[in-house]
């Protein structure tokens, strides 16, 4: 302690104007002006290297004729890849599927997460176990969880179908083929995506619910407000910022992720569950048309940009308040 105190008193003794001289004599690693940028530099480099550079590269690839094994970056060909992609019925179907997949899954995630979070604010026996089980899909590797669902919904050995049959809900002769019918396949991939994202949204909403002042709820109870009145006129309006954040994060996850669809259906049946991210992968990586794949993936960009702007504005508003 003595050493620190000694330093402080020495600095105090220096007249105004002498501080700069003293500061320059301090070791570099003890200076905020030097250490601050140094400490933030890895994060900046990380974002630049793993987000910035690939993004700029994909912008260029989309207007080039680069192929998977091109030796360079390809030749500039303008918007030819975009016009080519727009002529493809598969692309148009994937665009529609992307919106259906995203909107339906996010609506379900928000409603179910709100219900779960409300339940978790109450005290009940085994709450910690329930909380652990709810979080499990989020902490498990996504590919592993999805492979589990692939078997759960398998055409031959589906335990889901077996249980439904045992409960006499369906006869053995008409087991639903979860990935074989367009509507069922879309419902399956949405269901698994909801299963995966639900814990994340629940935790966010739970944090929002616990931050609502108790007096507000108590006052509404005194005024005679019932459960639904409280939910719609007090809780949901107060939760709106946090629900927006959960929703926007979910939209980004749904728009950009292809793991669930790739593992479960590979875009089938007959492109019935093909989304832009999976189509970009099939075209660019498996098909070898790197530029075409980049052009498809860039159709997501305007929507993601809008989502990012909204998120930043919400974050800024929260910071101001």
């Amino acid at each position: 302690m003595g050493k620190v105190e000694g330093k402080t008193s020495a600095l105090e003794a220096v007249p105004l104007g002498g501080t700069a001289v003293r500061a320059s004599r301090r070791p570099l690693l003890d200076r905020e002006s030097f250490l601050g940028p140094i400490m933030i530099l890895p994060a900046v480099l990380y974002v630049l290297a793993l987000v910035g550079v690939p993004f700029v590269l994909s912008l260029y690839l989309a207007v080039s004729d680069a192929k998977i094994a091109s030796t360079g970056l390809g030749r500039f060909i303008g918007l030819a890849n975009f016009t080519s992609v727009l002529q493809s019925p598969t692309f148009l179907r994937s665009l529609v599927n992307t919106f259906v997949f995203t909107v339906v899954s996010q609506a379900l995630v928000l409603v179910l997460a709100k219900i779960l979070a409300t339940c978790l604010t109450k005290q009940f026996y085994g709450k910690s176990i329930v909380r652990f089980l709810i979080l499990l899909p989020w902490v498990a590797p996504i590919s592993l969880g999805t492979i589990g669902w692939k078997w759960m919904l398998d055409s031959l050995y589906s335990p889901v179908n077996w249980v439904l049959q045992a409960l006499h809900v369906i006869p053995q002769s008409s087991w639903p083929m979860w990935f074989g019918v367009r509507e069922l396949a879309m419902a399956s991939v949405i269901g698994v995506h909801v299963w995966r994202l639900l814990p994340f949204a629940t935790v966010i909403i739970l944090a929002g619910l616990t931050s609502i002042p108790r007096e507000v709820e108590e006052a509404s109870a005194v005024d005679g407000a019932g459960f639904w009145s409280r939910e719609f006129y007090i809780v949901l309006p107060l939760l709106r910022p946090i629900l927006t954040v959960a929703g926007l994060f979910g939209i980004i996850f749904a728009f950009t992720d292809m793991t669930v669809i790739y593992v479960l259906t590979r875009g089938g049946p007959a492109d019935g569950t093909q989304v832009l991210s999976s189509l970009a992968f099939f075209t660019g990586i498996l098909g070898g048309d790197l530029a075409g794949g980049a052009a498809i993936s860039l159709f997501l960009f305007p929507m993601l940009l809008l989502v990012a702007v909204v998120m930043l504005r919400i974050a800024r508003r929260a910071e101001v308040s």
Partner: peptide
Amino acid sequence: MTNEVFTWDPSGNNRFFVSGK
């Protein structure tokens, strides 16, 4: 045939046949 022919990966028809179905 049934709708399962739309669901298969490369091992799907193997499992279907070897199951005896």
